[in-house]
Design a protein around this nucleic acid. Sequence first.
DNA 1: AGTTTGACCCGGACGC
DNA 2: TGCGTCCGGGTCAAAC
Length: 270
Amino acid sequence: MPELPEVQTVLDTLETRIKDREIVDIRILYEPIIECSKRTFRKKLIGQHFRSFRRRGKYLLFEMDDLTLVSHLRMEGKYFIVDEDYPLSKHDHVIFCLDDGKQLRYNDVRKFGRMELIEKKEEYEDFHGLGPEPFSDRFNVSYCEEYLSKKKLPIKQVLLDQSFVAGIGNIYADEILFAIRVNPKTRADILDEQDIRNLIKETRKILKKAIKAGGTTIRSYTSSLGVTGRFQLSLNVHTMEKCPICGNDIKKITVGGRGTYYCEKCQVEK
DNA sequence: AGTTTGACCCGGACGC
DNA sequence: TGCGTCCGGGTCAAAC
């Protein structure tokens, strides 16, 4: 499931492959992916060029000449760049035919992903109620203290809340909490200042490392296959068996309805 | 009004 | 093998 680092990686790769390409035709094979009508989508996008590539949380923002194409990959959305005669996959849903004969294909097994067209803007601060980007100055100690002090939910659940901070999903939430030795069930309002400093620091560190890893892996097979939302990352707790620190069994529980992995020795509840 | 919960979008995987 | 059920993440609407 693509989170911020995967989305950033997909975006970076797409930028190198399709920047300034023109959309000459669009085929929509599964309509619900598109938020507007087929007709509007085609009418507004055909003739437009991919000019710049931005990201807000887990949303991909393709800035065209006159508007912005927004794409969310949800769980399994992927983009592939292929020659037009490349066989169609069962799960290809939207096909953008480009002016160089290639096609940008949106593929999504679950069909959960969505695309929408919005007005082009200078900045996308206020967008789908998203909180600050983890690397922005807005994501600082006083902001977190203020926000978390009002939340009685488990910290894990708050980390997944995109209006607190944008881009963290289930995998990185577990990894971040492991890194700061905080139990995922800990009520958000009892984190102290040191926990919060650690939280901000580790969030940035882990995401940055993942972006770096993702970039490398994706680029290595981009030339033949295209662009996928998957990449290999080194995980410490999520889906792991043993704690890399103490060797204890990693526990799997449910927090806020999500599978959650943690070490009960290293991440003690307060 | 703010906060929290739950339905929903699907098809793959798994169990009987 | 075939059928039914569950699972999963993010978003938004509904409920509290």
